[in-house]
Simulated assay, not measured.
Amino acid sequence: MKKIYIASTLGLFLLSCNNPQPASQQEEASPAPATETVAQADSVQQTDAVSSATNVAKSASYNGVITVPPQRQATVTLTMGGSIHSTNLLPGSYVRQGEVIATLENPEFIQLQQTYLESAAQAEYLEKEYNRQKMLSEQEAASQKRFQQSKADYLSMKSRMDAAAAQLKLLQVDVRQLHDQGIEPYLQVKAPLDGYVTNMKVNLGTYLNAGEPICDIINKGETLLELTAYEKDLDYLQVGSSVEFQVNGMGSQTFEATVITIGQEVDDVNRSLQVYARVKDQNSRFRPGMYVSAKIRKND
């Protein structure tokens, strides 16, 4: 009996040695390699081995486009409609402020000039008659009724002349030249500022109603970056912060800008806001609408 008991005990001991622990228990018992722990820590922050100080990144990346200030771009629209009689413009052409970019045909323009010249001549005559009646009235040599009538006639005609002159001024017509040179058959459309022609929408014979655009003019003397940021980035955004950016299509060349304004309203849909930065050194290759990638450095 003793031999049988010893053999059974020995068999149980050997069976327990051949059954390893479950895999889950082995993983809990085995410590993670030191190299993996260090790698995870580096993904969060880097620690200086001497001072134990952490080095946290102080810049954030943003995407956006090149643009120009509203004061340096203009949409050329018509105060009076008409058909395009002539134009020498091509998209991308450079024009000077006051340069004629197109001429229009419209009989109403001729009538407006005629109205002004006729009312100006009548106003001159009625003014003299009014002054004469005023003098006679003071000397009691004329009736007050006649004096009042001459005054009303003069003021009415002067009002008509002034209204026609104001309309011509909106059309960029100098009424002094109108007196000297007579009626102009075509309305001249002039450039409101120096710049390059874009979005040209006309050709010879095109009829445009009042308020319709002919083209846009862009002055690239000052360019801005329009960057898209998000509300989570507000801690990085400060007026005066330095910006380093690259322009799509211009290789790895980098440029500098400075943040000048930060949007005060967050979009309800994507929670974004616009950030504008002024480019320091202008480049003739810059075009409004070009895609940029930028990094804004947080001020200390």
Rank of each mutant, 00 (worst) to 15 (best):
Q181M: 01
G195W: 00
M80F: 14
Y291K: 06
H85T: 01
R146E: 12
T261S: 14
F286T: 04
A7F: 15
A164D: 05
A163M: 05
A41R: 10
G211M: 14
E127V: 00
I84H: 06
A120E: 11
T37R: 06
Q133V: 07
T67E: 05
K58I: 00
A163N: 12
N19Y: 05
S93Y: 11
A257L: 01
I110L: 08
A165P: 08
V266S: 14
G92T: 05
A294W: 08
N203L: 12
C17Y: 15
E127K: 02
G205P: 06
R297P: 04
R297A: 04
I218Y: 04
P185G: 15
N55Q: 13
K58C: 01
N299E: 03
P91M: 01
P20F: 05
S252A: 09
T77Y: 12
E28W: 07
E36V: 06
V292H: 02
E184H: 09
S156Y: 06
Y291S: 10
T258I: 15
L237V: 04
N88I: 03
A142M: 04
M161F: 07
A23Y: 10
V292Y: 01
V247A: 11
L237C: 13
L204G: 08
T75M: 04
E265G: 12
N63Y: 15
T115E: 10
I262D: 09
T87M: 07
R285M: 13
D267G: 12
L193W: 10
A39F: 10
R297M: 04
N131P: 00
T258Y: 15
Q113E: 12
K3I: 15
N18P: 06
T67I: 07
N88F: 15
Q71P: 00
L112A: 13
E140V: 00
L193F: 08
L15T: 14
V100R: 02
L273C: 11
V239R: 15
I183K: 09
H179F: 14
E222K: 12
G263T: 10
N106I: 08
T223L: 02
N203W: 09
D233P: 09
L90W: 13
